[in-house]
Design a protein around this nucleic acid. Structure first.
Ligand code: FES
Ligand code: FES
Lengths: 143, 143
DNA sequence: CTAATCTTGACTATTTTTGTCGGGTATATA
DNA sequence: TATATACCCGACAAAAATAGTCAAGATTAG
């Protein structure tokens, strides 16, 4: 049970931008080098982040990406929504009366998975990019 | 981000045994029919559950499986351990000083994923089969 | 004996993940 | 205006993980 690389990279890259944020656009090339992520893969990811208005792009020489909002406003859940990371533990359609096994009622584990799903989503709703930067700074200086 | 079918089936099947627990062994065939899970796949899963002492097997006619412990003693985390479900969010070796990206220090997202990992494992450590049965009963009768 | 049941290891099909490739288009700056 | 630097986009492909199947056997109640 883990996050996809796509999602991890998305958060990594955004955190990179946020920490280098001198109001100048950050190029994917730089992120790629600093974070060791394939440039072309990053392009894919940022296409989605842009469509979902998490970042703004500036084209041309000295271009790159900037965050659309303050890091404290960017929740993990928004990022994951943008890159199609879904926390899906329940295997049935929630609205339907039917269960995941094709039976006419919910399976015995349904409510457990539902609870787990809420539990995890809660984490992603509470955490934002700002928290990440702060935490990171704390832990690093604490050495 | 989701659990594997193997893990879901394991919990489902164990819950099935627990709720039919009249001290009689429950055959995989019955579970397969009731829960709509491939019999052969269940065999694979139960092989692991047995090795990890979650269930005991009784061979021969009228054989089947019984739980090794009281449902309240069987934590989700034990079940997942048995079927190799791993909650792995951090992508580096935790003990090492090195990061997931081959760099010499931990990446900027490391502490976030570490926190998430603990958070999720906490859920699995707190929940047991008994909780599941109780919850399920409540929710169903509440209609 | 024989039918029901567990036991085991190898094998395979499908899906998902993790990217690459090859072509664009826009723009700052010399 | 030329050029290099960047973003933009859709199709494709390798690799890994998942979700099983298949075949052959061992054990035991009745
Ligand atoms: S997960 Fe919803 S019915 Fe099984
Ligand atoms: S996850 Fe540990 S260093 Fe990146």
């Amino acid at each position: 049970m883990k996050l996809s690389s796509k999602s991890r990279y998305a958060v990594m890259a955004l955190a990179d931008i946020a920490s280098f944020n001198k109001n100048k656009p950050v190029s994917l090339r730089d992120i790629s080098l600093r974070q060791n992520i394939s440039l072309v893969f990053l392009e894919q990811i940022f296409s989605k982040l842009k469509k979902n208005n998490i970042v703004k792009s500036i084209r041309g020489t000295n271009g790159g990406y900037v965050l659309s909002n303050d890091p404290n406003q960017i929740k993990l859940s928004s990022i994951f929504l943008a890159v199609d990371e879904k926390v899906k533990q329940v295997q049935c359609k929630k609205e339907s009366k039917k269960g995941c096994n094709g039976k006419s009622s919910k399976c015995i584990t349904h409510y457990l998975w539902d609870e787990l799903e809420l539990y995890i989503n809660d984490f992603f709703n509470k955490k934002n990019l700002g928290d990440l930067l702060k935490k990171n700074l704390e832990t690093r200086t604490e050495t």
